[in-house]
C-alpha cells in the first residue's frame, strides 16, 4: 500500500516498506484487517468478487490467516474452476492465532482449481470475527527426493 498523502507532496514521508522483505512482489494482500459480527439469523458472508485471486498462474499458495477473534463461525478458503462455481473448501480456520495453509493445484485436501476467495460460515448464534489474510504464491514446490540418487 502506498503512502497516502492528503496534503503537500510529502516527498520525505515514505512508508518504510522498501527496506523490508515482508511485503515483496510475491505477497498478495488477500484481505486487509476486517472485523465483522452478525446476528444468529445471518447467513454466510462471501468475499466480494473484486478481491478473489485468479489463481491459475501459480501452482501453490501459502495462505496466512491472522485471526484476532472468532466466535461461532469459521473462516473458509474456497476455490472454484469458474466464477459461477461450484465452490469447494480448501482450508478452514476456526481459532484465534496466526495460522497457515498450503493450497496446491496438484491435489490433496487443500486443492485449489482456479479462483480463490474467502467466506465466513456462521453458526446459528450471534457470531463475530476479526482477521486478515495474506497469500504467498509459488510456481511450484520442490518434491522431496525419496529414491536413490547418483553420487
Amino acid at each position: 500500500m502506498a503512502t497516502r498523502v492528503l496534503q503537500g507532496t510529502g516527498a520525505g514521508a515514505t512508508r518504510s516498506g522498501s527496506g523490508f522483505p515482508a511485503e515483496g512482489a510475491d505477497m498478495i494482500r488477500f484481505q486487509e484487517w476486517l472485523e465483522m459480527s452478525g446476528a444468529s439469523t445471518t447467513g454466510e458472508v462471501v468475499q466480494p468478487s473484486r478481491g478473489w485471486i485468479p489463481g491459475a498462474e501459480y501452482s501453490t499458495y501459502l495462505m496466512k490467516a491472522e485471526i484476532l477473534y472468532v466466535s461461532n463461525c469459521t473462516l473458509v478458503i474456497e476455490s472454484s474452476p469458474t466464477v459461477e462455481g461450484p465452490w469447494q473448501s480448501a482450508a478452514t480456520f476456526g481459532v484465534p492465532g496466526t495460522l497457515m495453509a498450503v493450497l496446491s493445484s496438484e491435489g490433496g485436501l487443500s486443492r485449489f482449481s482456479h479462483y480463490i476467495r474467502w467466506r465466513v460460515d456462521p453458526a446459528a448464534a450471534e457470531w463475530g470475527i476479526c482477521f486478515q489474510l495474506k497469500a504467498f504464491p509459488s510456481k511450484g514446490m520442490a518434491e522431496p527426493n525419496m529414491g536413490p540418487r547418483r553420487v
Binding site: Q7, L68, Y69
Partner: peptide
C-alpha cells in the same frame, strides 16, 4: 509539509488471550 494517514479508520476485536497487534512494517512512516 505533508499530512499522512498513519492509519485509516480501523476496527479490531481480539479474543481473550490475544495480546494485541502491531502495525505492519511496510506501513510504518519514515
Amino acid at each position: 509539509d505533508a499530512v499522512v494517514e498513519l492509519q485509516e479508520l480501523l476496527s479490531l476485536r481480539g479474543a481473550t488471550g490475544v495480546a494485541g497487534v502491531i502495525q505492519e512494517m511496510p506501513l510504518w512512516v519514515e
